[in-house]
Design a protein around this nucleic acid. Structure first.
Lengths: 346, 346
DNA sequence: TCTCCTTACGTCAACGTTGACGGTAAACGT
DNA sequence: ACGTTTACCGTCAACGTTGACGTAAGGAGA
């Protein structure tokens, strides 16, 4: 690139003081005009606005918030962005609500679990009025001072650890149960389950749903068929192929999130077993209906999750101090074909 | 929900003053300890840190930044989030760079073009140290005061209008040309082009690439075959079906972004012409390789775009005051099958 | 002994804004 | 004529933090 550090002095940003000097009034009058407080003659107001426009004035929100005791009309949102659709849908849901209430949404992505804490503290230190968190780390007790100071916070997709707070989650157990039942109803007895980190609440819950359905159907679970902690697409591929190579392979696969599902679909395609092994995925994904066979999924409404969480937060910000609530959203199974494949010939 | 507005007073957030009182030192000493300035005895420092921890102190970043003249260690990023992959990849690219430099990235989504301005001004008013913008609106001249005040800004994916600034873009013309040439080389003469809003820079550029390739191949362009301003999936579907119903229908379709591409694929599937009509899409998308036929695309590296833009911004923030640059990133065609379908029998 | 330096603090003012309050002159009521 | 209200505008202090500067105690060196 070109050599940096050439000397050039930028003019300071114009402040209310600059406007006041240009117009010949006090700073306070400028403030009054810009905040539409009234008590200023129309003529003065016009001159102030004209000067503000001419100078390209932008109010220093830092100073304003500081003076007003920390209210920033800002809420923080922390998400670890990995799965594509999740992020997008969530933000859309949240933004729909916050925008309606004149709030500014700060989205900060926490790349990894260990950065989650620093990201949240950074938001807190920037004096956000509320926090929406999709927790990734294994402990959120460091947020207690925030909670103690009355900063409202709502957890999304997973409950917090080391803290009691409002939470909006999907009915993971119910979804897992529905998927397993769907396969059991079609005669499957050897059902493999693939999933990401077993430390994740969602993974554990979905698995719990599966186990509950298996118990109810009096089908004994084979530990070999449950493969968790698959972090990469490559892991998923490997596990899938290993499962298929078993002496007594599964006739159906339930994958606990959409990244895994896509990995499974790829692996099956690779060995030409796409229409021999039944597949159900948790979480819908784009183009699932265009694959062959189209992929049956347990869908949940992530946008609704964001919306509800945002509404909960706003209600807290408006002064609701009732006990923390947990809202559980239903799932629904979208049958597309891959779940209809019967248990074949070994 | 439960009735709000119950009375409960939250304690004020602890400030350095509170710590100072507990420890029995001055506020300044507390500040020194927390900023690791030195000049404080180890014993005092320990007691300050202990008190800070006990009280759950978080520095008020507003006040700090205000005092320090507006530097917030924050850069703003504005994106309109619609196409899924774009957003995710971009942020990942940007974050990789910003995190390495200890900067806090504020992502604010601009739902629509008219909200872009207010979003940007909100970020500016929050005193961000730099701006990364994927412009959506038709004019960004309102950012001149920011530029005048020395706030560095880099535009991503499209150049700004009414302003001169650093820009990182894809070689849209080259990509469009490559796609058209690919189809022309395989004998296609009637090539349809589907795209989103013709007001978009990217759409116009990609189209320009197509036209250039057609001219060079001495194939006359049929205006009927170019359908722009398709905003919804439904629009795309309608246009595709209409094209196919023409007396002299296209033998190939080039779609200018991935939303359109998916719409085209759906429409072709619907009328059973998936393996009769060649398809190339601009911008790769997940599962493109698993569709049947797999979809040929012109891919570009959105993550790299984010990375380069962030680096440009950092270099500006470090004092580089050379003239605005435009960086153009190459595309590459990924041939997968849908682009290999020959011009069939009428 | 006195000077000079260092260490470890404290005091003060300021960043840009706004809430509380005060003042002045014109307009109004009787 | 008087008091009283009203419209308009200014002064001052404060939000929480930090830079500039001041100072007192202790040690080193002459």
């Amino acid at each position: 690139m070109s050599e940096p550090h050439q000397e050039r002095v930028f003019p300071a940003r114009p402040t209310m003081k600059a406007i006041a000097e240009q117009v010949g009034v006090s700073i306070k009058s400028v403030s009054r005009v810009l905040n539409e407080e009234g008590g200023v003659s129309a003529d003065t107001a016009d001159r102030v606005l004209a000067a503000a426009d001419r100078l390209g004035f932008r109010r220093n929100h830092l100073a304003r918030s500081l003076r007003q005791g920390g209210r920033t009309e800002t809420i923080g949102l922390v998400v670890k962005h990995s799965s594509t659709r999740f992020y997008d849908n969530l933000i859309r849901g949240v933004e729909g609500v916050t925008a309606r209430h004149g709030l500014f949404l700060l989205t900060a992505a926490s790349q990894s679990a260990d950065r989650e804490k620093s990201t949240l503290l950074a938001l807190s230190s920037r004096q956000v009025d509320g926090l929406l968190v999709v927790p990734t780390g294994s402990d959120q007790s460091y947020l207690r001072p925030e909670q103690f100071a009355g900063t409202p916070m709502v957890f999304i997709d997973r409950p917090p650890t080391g803290l009691e707070a409002d939470t909006v989650v999907t009915d993971n157990v119910g979804g897992g149960e529905a998927a397993a039942r769907h396969l059991l109803d079609r005669g499957h007895r050897r059902i493999a389950v693939l999933g990401a980190a077993s430390s994740l609440y969602t993974v554990r819950e979905r698995l719990r749903g599966v186990q509950s359905a298996l118990r109810r159907a009096k089908v004994r679970a084979d530990r070999q068929l449950t493969q968790l902690d698959l972090d990469s697409v490559e892991d998923v591929r490997g596990s899938t192929l290993a499962l298929l190579a078993l002496p007594d392979p599964p006739s159906a696969i339930f994958s606990l999130n959409n990244v895994c599902t896509i990995g499974v679909v790829r692996a099956l395609r690779e060995v030409g077993l796409s229409d021999r092994i039944a597949v159900i995925g948790f979480d819908d994904f784009e183009l699932a209906d265009l694959l062959q066979p189209a992929v049956t999924v347990v869908a949940h409404d992530i946008g609704a999750m964001g919306r509800l969480a945002a509404e909960r937060l706003l209600s807290r910000m408006a002064g609701d101090t009732s006990d923390p609530q947990t809202v559980t959203l239903p799932t629904h199974l979208i049958s597309r074909g891959s779940g209809e494949i019967p248990p074949g010939i070994g």
